[in-house]
Structure formats: structure tokens, C-alpha cells
Simulated scan of single mutants.
Amino acid sequence: MVGIGLKRVHHIAIICSDYEKSKHFYVDCLGLSPVREVYRKERNSYKLDLAVGDHYQIELFSFPDPPARPSFPEAAGLRHLAFEVDDVEASKKRLEEMGIQVEDVRIDPYTEKKFTFFQDPDGLPVELYES
């Protein structure tokens, strides 16, 4: 066995500042499917598990007054969250129809695939990458 036997990404955890706003964004705007939603009274926190296709899961957490995390494109740490789509142009148009500001579509110089970026309600950079 090489390495420690990692098989795939299990989940991606996101802490949001406004649970209802972020839940609407990830479920209603992006179309992710709720798997399980729980309220953890002892932490005054919601946890919403969201399915991304058949493989990955996003855990959306709420906490009272989470501290802001500075985000700069080239800072150390998580750079962005990327989703694969069949048609970047169509997805961009749909997001814009919902009032979400989306950057111009660009072409990856190495793969020649289309991609674009937008932000979630807390400013987390989200990428759409054409399959």
C-alpha cells in the first residue's frame, strides 16, 4: 500500500454566518440535495448535509457569531470550492437570473475547458468547471 489508503474526499465543511441565507444558496440556487439537517442545541448550531451528485457531501454549519476569515486568492489555505458542470455558460446564465454576480467565463490554458467564479453568501470563492 502506498500512502495511507485514501480513497476519495468524504466531505467538505463550510461554516456560514447566516444559516438560512446559505441554506437557500446551496439548496435553491446551486441545487444541492439535503441529506440530513440537525439542530445541535448544545452548540446553538445547525448542521446540514448536502449531496453533490452521488459522490461528495458538503456539511454546512452555523455557529453564533463565527469570526470572519480573511480570504485572498493567493493566501495559504483553501483557495476555492469547485463544481463540475456540463455547460458553464448555461450555469452562469442561470445563476445571473437568480441575481448572483458571476465572473466572465475563461478558458483553462492547459485543458482548454471553460470555467468561471462566483461567491457564496459569505464570500467563499466558488468555481464552475466544464466537464
Rank of each mutant, 00 (worst) to 15 (best):
K93Q: 12
P67K: 10
A90S: 15
P73G: 07
E89C: 07
R79G: 02
A68N: 09
F83H: 12
E89H: 07
D65C: 06
F83I: 02
L78R: 00
E96G: 08
E84N: 11
R69L: 14
G77F: 00
V85Q: 04
A75W: 03
P67F: 05
A68P: 05
P64S: 12
A75Q: 11
A75D: 10
L78Q: 01
H80L: 07
L78K: 01
R79W: 00
E97T: 01
E89N: 07
E89M: 12
G77P: 11
A75E: 05
S71W: 09
P66I: 09
K93C: 14
L81D: 10
P66C: 04
A68K: 15
K92Y: 03
S91Y: 08
S71V: 11
K93T: 13
E97G: 03
P73I: 02
E89S: 14
E96L: 05
A75F: 05
E84P: 00
P73Y: 04
H80S: 06
P73L: 02
E96Q: 13
S71G: 04
E96R: 10
K93M: 13
D65L: 06
F72L: 13
E74I: 03
F72C: 11
D87N: 15
E74N: 14
E97W: 04
A75P: 01
A68V: 06
L95A: 10
R79V: 00
F72D: 14
P66W: 08
K92C: 14
R69D: 07
V88T: 11
P70L: 05
A90N: 09
E97P: 08
S71D: 09
E74Q: 11
K93E: 13
F83D: 13
D86N: 13
S71Y: 10
V88K: 00
V85W: 01
A76P: 00
L95I: 06
A75R: 08
A68L: 08
H80Q: 13
G77E: 03
L81H: 02
P73F: 04
F63D: 09
D86S: 12
E89A: 13
D87V: 04
E74A: 08
P73T: 02
G77S: 05
E84Y: 09
S71P: 00
D87H: 13
E84S: 14
A76D: 10
E84I: 12
E74W: 04
A68I: 11
H80E: 10
L81P: 02
F63P: 00
A82N: 03
R69K: 11
L95T: 07
F83Y: 09
K92R: 15
V88D: 05
G77N: 03
R69M: 13
V88E: 00
F72S: 15
R94N: 11
E97A: 15
D86W: 03
